[in-house]
């Protein structure tokens, strides 16, 4: 019975299937709203889903200079790591798996999905991919610093004298004491997280790694067919995961008690967050250059996160 339940969690909800569906929904909403902002009609909301199934049916071409094993294995590794993360993120009181160090595991799994993109691009042997992975890695280095500071801040705030890295415990604390967003010392950290999300997912203005006009999609240039479909799916899954992480870290304070209703409210909040931190910024800004991106994250965003850490450290 336990095994069946675990398999259900892994494969259907909140594991692979739920993440895929919710991620593709968010990607569709994102595209539609940008189009409306730009006075176009835009594609239907299910367009990313259609794209995914279309790509599944296309032929995968492996370039001559590519390392075949790594080339085909990289999207699979990325997919696995992202599907596992969702199992650790609590949806307003319902957690599939919880350990004592979820935050660090989530941090590393997100890193692995980024590494999967990088290694896949590198193995394709194209020089455009080489430039793309260099930029992607610098982007990862840029947003890791504020991201770890935010996680350390949350751990200290919730735990007090002992540190708490477990998502379940963070959720329980928020249900008892009110959401973290409403503690005023955590507001800079929340702002920093809102700025980290677009860089992780790779939307403008932080998508210099996939700059379509300069390096023709960067790491993904030689990908086609099912492998490309899985990579695009990974990007969509990252949307729901990052906004879901923000929701459970900063807005986890209430629950209605019914799992299905909680899930709907969760996805609704994630949609609002997507519109706030990804769509709006995407529609109104241009792309940053890589050195500006690095400087932005290591000065402004890290400064916000650090301000929160110092406030929490002083006991506020």
């Amino acid at each position: 019975m336990e095994i069946l339940k675990s398999i259900f969690y892994i494969l259907v909800f909140p594991g692979a299937l739920f993440t895929m569906v919710a991620g593709l929904w968010l990607a569709g909403v994102d595209r539609k709203v940008i189009a409306k902002m730009q006075k176009r009609i835009g594609p239907p909301i299910l367009q990313p889903t259609y794209d995914f199934f279309k790509l599944m049916g296309k032929e995968t071409i492996v370039p001559r200079v590519a390392n075949r094993l790594v080339f085909l294995g990289a999207p699979v590794i990325g997919f696995i790591s992202l599907a596992i993360i969702m199992l650790f993120i609590p949806i307003f009181g319902f957690t599939a798996f919880s350990g004592s160090a979820d935050l660090i595991v989530i941090l590393y799994l997100i890193t692995i999905s980024g590494v999967a993109l990088i290694v896949g691009g590198s193995s394709s042997g194209s020089p455009y991919a080489g430039i793309g992975i260099s930029r992607e890695m610098v982007t990862m280095m840029s947003y890791e610093l504020p991201f770890v500071i935010i996680l350390l801040t949350v751990a200290k705030k919730v735990g007090g004298a002992d540190l708490v890295f477990s998502m379940d415990a963070i959720g329980a604390w928020q249900r008892a004491n009110g959401s973290l967003l409403f503690q005023w010392s955590m507001i800079p950290a929340a702002l920093a997280m809102l700025l980290v999300i677009p860089a992780e997912v790779g939307v403008q203005p932080f998508d210099v790694a996939e700059a379509e006009t300069e390096i023709c999609e960067g790491p993904l240039i030689e990908y086609s067919g099912a492998a490309l479909g899985v990579f695009k799916l990974n990007t969509a899954m990252k949307m729901i995961i990052m906004t879901g992480l923000f929701t459970s870290l900063f807005l986890g304070g209430f629950t209605t008690g019914i799992v299905a209703l909680d899930v709907l409210i969760f996805v609704a909040i994630c949609t609002v967050l997507t519109l706030l931190c990804m769509t709006t910024i995407h529609a109104v800004t241009a792309r940053l250059k890589i050195e500006h991106l690095f400087r932005f994250y290591w000065t402004f965003v890290a400064g916000l996160a650090m301000a929160s850490l110092i406030l929490v450290w002083c006991g506020l």
Binding site: L11, L55, P75, V76, F79, A226, G229
Partner: peptide, 16 residues
């Protein structure tokens, strides 16, 4: 479980 789906996605799709 997840490895299985992922591998299936890449291997089953993309064939000529």
């Amino acid at each position: 479980g997840v490895l299985f789906i992922g591998a299936a996605l890449v291997i089953l799709g993309g064939r000529n």
